[in-house]
Nucleic acid binder design. Structure first.
Lengths: 240, 240
DNA sequence: CGCGGGGTTGAACATTCTCAAGAACTGTGG
DNA sequence: CCACAGTTCTTGAGAATGTTCAACCCCGCG
């Protein structure tokens, strides 16, 4: 994890933090259903790392041999397209992980990971995670489960985005947002800036802005502030 | 695997074929490195199924509790988008598998799988595969490896397709095709009709046709026949 | 020889992007 | 608490990119 990077901006914070931090592992779905002893064992294998807002966890092109699990905070995962544009892949929240490829082959990162706020991540090296998987098949199973789910999502998203119009992409995104956060009112708060949202949906901020206004004109949503949106007609949205 | 489908077209071929077919399992990467006894055990868990051209393996909305491994032949996996258009996700060749989600949760298929020619698939039910994974951690590891790889590919493709112009998507596809088939000459044969290719790349046959002609005008490729394309300037293609 | 499906081409049309300018918001320091 | 600077967001107009629809071609096949 030595960064001989030459970026003028910022780097890994050097403060690798406390070893074997406590709650690092406990929030992670794939580690559920383990006995206390197993938990302890895992905690000993992992190291925690503290990132400040804007810090980079890894960059495209760097060697990848570590699994990162977010303990608290948020990590932005994005790629740079051939045409030099940034495209947001996902935002990792507490309990989610990245670096799955690292676990199986010598490979290089193809994306960038950057802390959106102060964030604590747990790190486990490929070697150690391997041992873990072989020792506890249920962890392997849980990880498989998670990857299968992600694959399905990725495919669903790819399908939707490649063909659908921007308007439908936005509509889908809004509907998913309702489902995600258990909303009593059907009001959602965008989890990112519109710039990021545009990048995530494969379009531009301008278009997002216009389409949202359009949806508002059609009476499907209500923009209460730049980040807060109230869904007026979820059914209508689905048919966009 | 009872199909109470009411489609007038065609269904599963009923001839569920020979039980525990021989080479079904032997071609599958995730089953490599196993002892002969283990192989035998696996063979006993699986059943083979013969599909004729055009037969459906599964449809969107059907319950999914089986892993399918292609022994010989090809399977077209596609989705229908909200707007009712077909979008090709991938083509499974010998040794590849589908149904990964089936393995972990009660879930429904969201895609369609259809034989492109006479095809033999091996089937393993969720329950049996689970037992297998728990018993042989190395299989779990190999499966994880495969899924991680697929996830990476899916993400890469999603990124590329969402932002890139059709022209670049085609160029990328051509370049990958060179790499895939070890080509002495840099001549490739499209693995599918242009109609399917269009669906795969998220565009229309018309646009494919036009863009290919354009690439030819630019001296990057040569269309020898409707399916055969010679790459004249791979470097140039990469910069499209 | 005629039929049918894929493939190609053209022209009108729809969608989205780009660039540019201005408005609204956020956080900071006085 | 206010003013300022740096963003982010919105809006407009023109340009680029792809889609649609319709006609036509080509080729394999009965």
């Amino acid at each position: 994890m030595n960064h001989e990077t030459s970026s003028p901006k910022e780097q890994h914070t050097k403060n690798a933090g406390h070893h074997s931090s406590m709650n690092c592992v406990s929030k992670v779905p794939i580690f559920n259903h383990l006995s206390p002893e197993q938990m302890t064992e895992i905690k000993e294998l992992s190291q925690s790392l503290v990132l400040e807002k804007g810090d980079t966890l890894y960059r495209s092109g760097e060697e990848s041999d570590t699994l990162y699990i977010v303990n608290s905070g948020r990590i932005r995962i994005y790629r740079i397209t051939e045409s030099g544009k940034e495209r947001l892949l996902k935002i990792l929240h507490s309990g989610e992980f990245t670096g799955e490829m690292a676990l199986f082959t010598e490979s290089l990162h193809e994306s960038y990971a950057e802390a959106m706020e102060k964030t604590v991540v747990c790190t486990i090296t490929r070697k150690k995670f391997h041992e873990l998987l072989l020792k506890y098949p249920t962890i392997a199973l849980a990880t498989l489960h998670e990857l299968a789910y992600r694959l399905k999502s990725a495919e669903a998203q790819a399908t939707r985005f490649v063909t659908a119009k921007v308007e439908s992409r936005i509509a889908s995104f809004l509907i998913e947002s309702i489902n995600d956060a258990d909303n009593p009112s059907s009001e959602i708060v965008l989890p990112m800036s519109k710039k990021d949202l545009a990048s995530y949906l494969g379009t531009t901020p301008e278009t997002i802005s216009r389409k949202l206004s359009q949806l508002e004109d059609e009476g499907l949503i209500l923009q209460k502030s730049s980040r807060r949106i109230k869904i007026l007609d979820a059914e209508g949205l689905k048919n966009v």
